[in-house]
Amino acid sequence: MLSSTKYLIREGFRNLWTNRLMSFASMGVLICCLLLMGSAALVSVNISSAMGWLGDQNAVMVFLGDDVTAELSDSVKTQIEAVGNIKTIEFVSREDAFASIMSKLSDDASMVDALSDTAEFLPNAYKVTFDDLSRFEVTVDQIKQIEKIQHVSDKRDFVKRLNGINKVVSVVGLWIVGMLFVVSLFIITNTIKLTMYVRKLEIGIMKSVGATDWFIRLPFLVEGIIIGLFSGIVSFGLVTYVYLTASSAVTSTFTIGIVPYSSFWWIVLLGFLFTGMFAGSSGSLISIRKYLKNDGGISND
């Protein structure tokens, strides 16, 4: 068995070399597709992350009734947390709120004068952010049910739009990745098929001496996997280089954005290797299928 394995792997490499033009063509096509897929995925990840960040900027203010004492407000907090989907919850006292307003108005002296000593008219509040923005409305409605809550600042329109954009980005990203995968599979299959003309002789001889279907298939499979792995590694190198260069450029220009590469490079690597191997091996198996299906093909091509 060991010598068979060695033979099959060597045979895979020999085929690669014999058909090196086609092998390089397959790799080229696969690398292009992997790069496009990878870019689509990375852009989509960054847009999602930017959306999340924008969402955090839009905390909901939960205003408490005038009669809520310090002790009562603690129980309200517990009740809000019990609703679930709460990421952060922060108490904003009427004094804090007043100071914040005053600082925004500080340019306009007459307004400041007019408003001084009105702090007691402002309610105490909780500033709340959510884990999952898509459940924004449900969560807000549940919070509204809680007693002693006077009012919840409701920005559903904005959140709705955010969620909409996020969904579109994910769906379009998935479609692009899916279509590119099909395209690359199609091109690889046809590239390998072009080499079949040369290999018909070998397949016929293998059949005539009694090689099993799997023994005939395996060198092709090895070949497809090598093409896939190689393409995956090259694509990973290129994407890593571009991403690191781009993110250092972007972060030095803007303050926000760009998900750090260190947090997910291994997902990109595994994704590329797996997709490459899958495309390569499926391409091989699809191209050879026709030649194994019939019992003939021994005495003539």
Binding site: I205, K207, S208, V209, G210, T212, D213, D295, I298
Partner: peptide, 19 residues
């Protein structure tokens, strides 16, 4: 179909065009 390889191992085939 899956018996064929083992059946064919019992014979040796010589072709006109050598193959």
């Amino acid at each position: 179909h899956k018996d064929l390889p083992f059946y064919r191992r019992t014979m040796g085939i010589v072709f006109q065009d050598f193959r």
